[in-house]
């Protein structure tokens, strides 16, 4: 899967796949840092949104892929992101004809301790 320029700017790569959804990896770097030693909340949010989008993209064959327009995102931050690799994966909660409801979760060393989760509602134009 080819990631958009913004994903490249964050340094994201596809590190695996789970239930058809790409597992995204964001290495720690100065570009995604907020205050010293911690990830920026905006970079975490960007990673979560990209994980949700790519989970949805992966559901469609290339020629049937709809355009996705974000309507809302709600991000809950549970733990500070430290100087470590961050992983994220998106889950399609419901896929309708016009709207999809998505979730995404991000973690670092321990998957059982997520650093942030997001819920998104997106509009599909086919």
């Amino acid at each position: 899967m080819k990631l958009p320029p913004y994903a490249e700017l964050l340094g994201l790569s596809v590190a695996g796949e789970e239930a058809g959804a790409p597992l995204l990896l964001m290495p720690f770097g100065v570009g995604v840092m907020g205050r010293p030693g911690f990830l920026h909340g905006g970079a975490i949010g960007g990673l979560l949104e990209m994980a949700a989008f790519t989970a949805l993209y992966a559901r469609f064959p290339d020629e049937e892929r709809p355009r996705i327009k974000p309507i809302t995102v709600t991000v809950d931050f549970m733990r500070g992101g430290r100087e470590a690799d961050t992983f994220a994966i998106g889950i399609i909660t419901r896929l309708g004809t016009r709207v999809a409801n998505l979730e995404a979760v991000a973690w670092q060393e321990d998957r059982a301790k997520p650093i942030a989760v997001a819920r998104m509602n997106v509009l599909l134009s086919r």
Partner: peptide, 24 residues
């Protein structure tokens, strides 16, 4: 900036940078 594009077909900015802007 072209580096902030989320959808190459339309050239529209990704939503992530707007989230980060509003966070800041």
């Amino acid at each position: 900036s072209e580096r902030l594009i989320g959808d190459e077909a339309s050239g529209v900015l990704a939503s992530g940078p707007i989230l980060a802007l509003m966070d800041m």
